[in-house]
């Protein structure tokens, strides 16, 4: 490589032409704290937390959006950088409501994490917080913009990954916040309620409603979405035979960080009380519960009688566009080799 090389915390590193200081540091295994940077999104520099000191030029700069330039001598934790970072965090906190104790973001809050790392607590210095009504008029996304820290991850995610451009950051000074074009609720706007922005919000401003009070999972399992033919991978957080939450981002998946409202919020049917839990057989006009043994005898009798009486082609089998490949294979094998008919199809020919 035609190496541009810079020094970070005394270590020399050669960098790619487009590299930024934050990325170069990451390559060295040095984590620079940040709230607004996200590896999947364009760099922004909004939060100012990633401030570092360049001793070559004697300046402080934000690592996420500053290109790594030849000769830089970066110190990520110099007293000047730490002091500046601390002041930035203080400012953000001064504007943040004191609801950490009840905020469901809990330990996952990056603001709380960074604040405690530099020894700040929420109550250190308090100005008047911004107050917004909680925007709640849809069953998927809980928006409490008083907790918004202005990182614009949601705005960038919606534009750069989801391509919906449903929210923009309106410049209203201290009241600046992400909102839909007409400042309407998400429902009914260009928002597709895909939940991507929620999954990336570093604080508790955007939260998912389904599974909000569900607690922690025992295990995570990767399954293919039961809905459309895109074949997104859903990661299910599971405990006590229940799905607590659904997320994306599984390695090797077709969807990366993305899902739609159906995949993310549409698995409630699995645990619905309407699920059939025992076989039913018709007795005197009514469907009544029966044992597997009794139900299967009826099936074998009913299919067998048709084959014996009218030949195998008097039986027809419908397989399922929702069943697995292995099951569809078995159903075809059953129709053709056990019943002896090619009368097999499924209901969705595309």
């Amino acid at each position: 490589m035609t190496g541009t090389s810079i020094r970070i915390n005394g270590k020399r590193v050669s960098v790619y032409p487009e590299a930024r200081v934050l990325g170069a540091a990451r390559d060295l295994g040095i984590q620079i704290p940040t709230l607004c940077d996200h590896p999947l999104l364009s760099p922004s520099g909004y939060c100012g937390v990633c401030v570092v000191e360049d001793r070559a030029s004697g300046t402080l700069l934000t690592a996420c959006n500053t290109p790594a330039a030849a000769g830089m001598d970066i110190w990520t934790d110099s007293p000047r950088a730490c002091e500046a970072r601390r002041r930035t965090l203080e400012l953000i906190l001064s504007d943040h409501p004191e609801s950490c104790v009840i905020c469901e973001k809990g330990n996952a809050c990056r603001l709380r994490d960074l604040a405690s790392a530099v020894g700040l607590s929420l109550t250190s210095e308090k100005h008047v917080g911004r107050l917004y009504g909680i925007n709640d008029a849809n069953p998927f996304i809980h928006r409490d913009l008083s907790k918004c820290i202005g990182c614009q991850i949601c705005v960038r995610a919606c534009r750069e990954i989801q391509g919906a451009e449903a929210v923009e950051f309106t410049d209203l000074g201290v009241r600046a916040r992400p909102m839909t074009s007409a400042d309407t609720e998400l429902a009914g706007s260009a928002c597709e309620l895909c939940g991507l922005c929620v999954s990336m919000c570093p604080v508790g401003a955007l939260l998912e409603k389904p599974g909000r009070h569900a607690g922690t999972e025992d295990e995570r399992r990767a399954v293919i979405c039961p809905y459309c033919g895109v074949g997104c991978t859903l990661e299910l957080a599971v405990r006590d035979n229940r799905i607590l939450r659904v997320s994306a981002g599984v390695e090797g998946s077709v969807n990366g960080p993305s899902l739609c409202a159906k995949g993310r919020y549409g698995l409630g049917y699995v645990g619905h009380p309407d699920r059939l839990t025992a076989p039913l057989v018709r007795e005197g006009g009514e469907l009544v519960e029966a044992s597997w043994d009794a139900a299967l005898s009826r099936v074998v009798d009913g299919l067998g009688r048709a084959v014996a009486g009218h030949g195998p082609d008097s039986v027809a089998v419908l397989a399922s566009a929702k069943a697995t490949n292995e099951e569809n294979y078995l159903i075809g094998k059953f129709a053709r080799s056990v019943i002896g008919t090619n009368n097999i199809d499924h209901c969705a020919r595309l």
Binding site: S320, A321, A348, L350
Partner: peptide, 22 residues
């Protein structure tokens, strides 16, 4: 073509069709 259900493609591939084996 974009397939409607999550395994229409697979159901067809697996021969859940009157004229085809897998």
């Amino acid at each position: 073509p974009l397939r409607g259900q999550n395994n229409v493609q697979g159901a067809c591939d697996m021969g859940a069709l009157p004229d085809f084996y897998p």
